[in-house]
Design a protein around this nucleic acid. Structure first.
Lengths: 267, 267
DNA sequence: CTGATTTTGGAATTTTTATTCCAAACCCGC
DNA sequence: GCGGGTTTGGAATAAAAATTCCAAAATCAG
């Protein structure tokens, strides 16, 4: 078998082979696939250490891919090496230059929106409210998570993280129009997520929880949101929209941080 | 004189010295100034040949700049290039060990992880694959979206965006263990999302779609993913994990861009 | 033009890096 | 468990690269 002549070909061969490879060689394949950009500037020993295999395994890997050895593989990547792209902002401009509305340009816009959202979140996060929320949730029984439409991905991820951290949590997703409001028992807590235009169902559930005396943690877009009135601490997320859709980056970051903090606090 | 600690410092020193240097050393300085980007991936002999000087001249040049030798200079450029992927699992452990696992600190880490993921996505996104994916989806009938566990939020958001853009789409979420694979009809297309450890159900559905001749668009974490083989274009997302959880920022940005592009292409 | 000083080229040496090879460990079907 | 083939780790070897050193060439001041 002859050596791949281009990086494209290399990637294909990597994808073809990766299955049906024994343990160590698969480790190599995975690490290389995830760190292709380091090949040009690393030694066998460095890459092998990264993949957590002995150097000889990496050599074997190179040969299986079709190269005569590591050096030949490295040559391919060194020749193609152009460090023009470690620069995020120029790359973004390049993507946008594909013309407005092109997939690449759209991607650039959403990446930027996400980044801006995260930056603003870092600046504006209310640490006191966050700590208070963690304290309330850490002391509660079952956590009831509700979020619909665009907030639904956040609600479902929150529930996933709670489950992984062995925190009892329940997702109120309205499936089958089944209503689970009576699952909320004294000692439980509620996390409600909604953004303008605010979802009635979410507000209703949050209101119900409040009426039963459960703590309600709200995650929403502004302090004037109807959810704010129902929540004991309300967490606001400054999400930047692009077009009609939001990136959710900041909301997710806040939510996961909340969940992990609660999970560790509960031990 | 000590070695430059940054590329900035290196450039300054180069500018300072370049005047008043004898012929051969000036050749070195000129060539290096014009080809700084090759330093990381070249040998002494190669650079010397490029500058049209003997290797020993280049060695002298490195020492005059302040390095102990060529290797030290090269290290500077290799390290500066490699994006320095932070090791989040150890950082998380440190956070906990120091008792500094405050919610605010966690939030900062997740924000940072999200930012890095987005930047990395911008740098590494495969525009050709993205365009191809958009073209395939734009020409298809119903779009079948599948993603479970941590990929579920992405799948559900994708479906939400498609619905908003009036693109017929169906979310295969395994609710009620109902299997909807026969809903996939000729002319449809499938979008499958999974990350390591890959979900069997997702792979099964993608495989089924492929077997029926539907185009499969895969969104996954690496090229060696089992999903790659099942997808006609596969889109890889370099998501940074923080602890056991990923921010999903990059995955969502890519997905929304894909959905919006498909939505507009379908008009 | 001469002698002192700097600069230069390349061969010799040292260090690092890649590569091979083989015995031990591991799997898998029986 | 037992014998087949595979896979693995590491020590030994080969290759390549970096680095040093010194004699020859060039430069320059007087």
């Amino acid at each position: 078998m002859s050596a791949p002549a281009s990086i494209e070909e290399f990637r294909n061969r990597l994808a073809d082979l990766s299955e049906g490879l024994p343990k160590r060689l698969r480790q190599c394949a995975d690490y290389i696939a995830a760190n292709t950009d380091r090949i040009a500037v690393s030694t066998v020993a460095e890459l092998a250490a990264g993949a957590d295999v002995p150097p000889s395994a990496l050599m074997r890997f190179c040969q299986i891919i079709g190269f005569s050895g590591f050096s030949e593989m490295q040559r391919l990547f060194r020749e193609a090496y152009s460090p023009g792209w470690p620069d995020y902002s120029t790359r973004l401009r390049n993507l946008k230059d594909n013309g407005a509305g092109s997939p690449a340009a759209l991607l650039a816009e959403f990446v930027e929106a996400g980044r801006l959202s995260l930056e603003q979140l870092a600046k504006s996060a209310d640490e006191a409210a966050l700590s208070q929320a963690v304290a309330q949730l850490a002391g509660a029984g079952t956590l009831h998570v509700v979020g619909l439409r665009r907030a639904y991905p956040v609600a479902s991820y929150l529930t996933y993280v709670f489950e992984k951290m062995q925190v009892p949590a329940m997702l109120h997703d309205g499936a089958g129009k089944l209503d689970h409001r009576h699952a909320m028992r004294p000692g439980d807590a509620c996390i409600a997520i909604t953004f303008a235009p605010y979802s009635d169902e979410t507000l209703a559930l949050a209101g119900d929880a409040q009426a039963r005396g459960l703590p309600v943690i709200g995650i929403t877009d502004r302090l004037t949101s109807p959810l704010a009135k129902l929540s004991s601490p309300v967490l606001t997320v400054p999400e930047v929209d692009f077009g009609a859709f939001r990136s959710l980056s900041a909301t997710l970051a806040l939510s996961i941080a909340l969940a992990v903090a609660v999970g560790s606090a509960r031990g």
